[in-house]
Amino acid sequence: MANAIITARGVGLDLGGVPVLRGVDLTAAPGEIVAVMGENGVGKSTLLRCLAGLHPSPRGEIDVLGGPPADLPDFWRHVVQAGDEPAWYPGLSVREHLELMEAVHRDARLTVGEALETFELTARADLAPLSLSTGQRQRLSLAMALLRPSRLLLLDEPERGLDAGFRRRLAAILRGYAAAGGTVVMATHDALLARDTAARVITLRAAS
């Protein structure tokens, strides 16, 4: 694919001598949503980490945004990874986390108010993230990821902790992101989310 955002060919990785990924191919174009599915332990999260440059030397060839991925600020200015374990800073409210994201990335995609409303966090805006439920913390993490500008979203089980109603809303949000030219690669167990986002599904199988 000439204008691909991601081109991965023959990606393989062993962890502790155990093969986790073997010969995985994946491409993603601008405006495309790719859902990586498969049983527990087939390497969905590991593949996402490889695409994010967080595994030092996977086998095969990985090209993200025209070069090999690297865990450096220049790479992360275009790529957002979210949805693994939500992270937050102590002593900052939900609103302030979004304020921080907006202050750091001046050309934000959403205003803080829009992000609070879109991710149904307005009533919890003045709470510390530690006081939120698991699903609300996940929504905060996704809100931060989608507030800032990016070209590629890497989401690891974004549906984790979300209720059925918000999963449908998330599908609409991701469709909107892709319609604006962004690319989404998400590892998921939710076939409905994959269907609602009109994602191209890649199913991984156990490497060993």
């Binding site: 302030e96 709470l127 510390a128 006081s131």
Partner: peptide, 11 residues
């Protein structure tokens, strides 16, 4: 910080 309501301030 657990359970505290904070007065959010803009940057």
């Amino acid at each position: 910080w657990r359970g505290r309501a904070l007065r959010s301030r803009p940057w």
